[in-house]
Simulated assay, not measured.
Amino acid sequence: MKAVVCRQFGLAHTELAEVDAPGMRADAIRIRVQSAGVSFANLLVLEGKHQNRWEPPFTPGTEVAGVVVECGAATSLFKPGDRVVAGVRIGGFAEEVVAPESTVFALPEAVDYDAAVQFPTIYATAYGALKWRAALAQGETLLVHGAAGGSGLAAIEIGKMLGARVIATAGDAAKLDAARRHGADIAINYRDVSFRDAVLRETSQRGADVIFDPVGGDTFNESLRCIAPDGRIIPMGFAGGTIPQIPANLVLVKNVSVIGIYWGYYMGWGRQAPPPAMAGRVRAAFQEMLEWAAAGKLRPETYASFPLERFRDALNTITERKVIGRVALHPAPTSAR
């Protein structure tokens, strides 16, 4: 099969190659990949800078959607021909991938493959962060930074499904329009005004109840100054390039909770395994999210898609920081899609 292979760290040492198909396991599902998600995290993995580090040679990619072609002897949920979406630890930029059945989920016909690949990490993280970890309640105010990226748009939509009023920040008109299109009630251009002042003004000086921050750095620091008492802030990424140092005095005096979220733990990719009951909870979460998507209540946005051989173009598109939503790769020929 064809796959993208990183021979040494760095995109320059990554190529499309013919490789052996991955070996099958009793607890696994073999998937013909129709679409694979492309993200900034993929670039970090290729550079050896991600928290989940792999030694070359390896095939990047953690989010796939496609068709089941083989089921392991110990599996029971799927059959060949089923449409599925899956999270994998590695190997997604390929024509086939083998995933444990525990991280494979049924894909409704109404959800296309490019939309589907946003669920294993992006939408799932927003869901876990806002519903499970922050317990975002109906009527609360949610502030979403980096609002036009895949993570931001997912957080806006999940926030609206949970009944929140959503304030979004972004850096240009097109991104602000995207935030509004996906449900943001208020959109703030942080280049034109202080988002801190704007959030306080829009909340009658109370501040946001929950803040979803994939940016970090100064954005995180200013967020702590426009968070409501008993507020929850979720530092779920550092796209700004700086990991903030949390000022404990502000956390203390404002009754603020700083909440971590690593979705990979719930998928079984952490250093410690989640409790057995978590598997059912994760599957129920995917079922709910994909039902929302099939009903048109969640609308993942695809900025661009590329055939597998143009993986460099796909990854370079990410570095331009103009992407609204996500980028996808298509390992399967168009005739097979």
Rank of each mutant, 00 (worst) to 15 (best):
A134R: 00
G87H: 04
A332R: 05
V38A: 07
M236D: 00
A17S: 14
W132P: 00
Q118R: 02
K79D: 00
A174Q: 14
N255H: 14
V45N: 04
Y266T: 06
K254R: 15
R53E: 13
S257W: 06
G152M: 10
N221A: 13
A154I: 03
G66Q: 04
H13R: 13
L162T: 00
I227A: 05
S257C: 13
A285Y: 06
A174N: 10
A198W: 05
W292D: 02
V256P: 01
A36E: 07
H330Q: 07
P275S: 08
I122H: 03
V253T: 12
L43T: 08
A328Y: 01
E288M: 07
I243V: 15
R180L: 04
F105L: 01
P60D: 05
K160Y: 08
W263F: 13
V253G: 04
R32Y: 09
T121G: 01
V98A: 09
L43I: 15
Q245P: 00
Q272S: 09
D185L: 09
P276A: 12
G270T: 02
R337W: 13
I31K: 07
R321G: 05
A74E: 13
F195G: 00
I122K: 03
A284F: 05
Q138I: 11
L46Q: 04
A148L: 05
G66Y: 03
G37Q: 02
I90K: 11
R271Q: 10
G237E: 09
V253Y: 15
I324H: 02
G207A: 13
E96Q: 13
R191W: 13
R180M: 03
T14R: 09
V111R: 08
V251N: 00
F311K: 10
M161C: 12
N221R: 12
M24K: 10
G23A: 14
T302P: 03
A208H: 06
I158R: 07
I29F: 10
A285G: 03
P307F: 11
N249Y: 12
T14K: 07
L130Q: 05
N42G: 04
V104I: 11
Q138E: 15
Q272Y: 05
I156K: 02
R53F: 15
A65H: 11
Y303R: 00
I158K: 06
I158V: 15
A336W: 11
E157S: 12
V4N: 10
N42P: 03
P235K: 00
S204D: 14
E288W: 14
N255G: 14
S257Q: 11
V98Y: 14
M278S: 06
E70W: 07
H182T: 09
E301A: 06
I90E: 15
V199E: 01
G91V: 12
S39P: 01
A126Q: 06
A28T: 07
Y303C: 01
S76K: 09
P244Y: 01
A116W: 03
L176H: 02
V253Q: 11
E96C: 01
E70H: 13
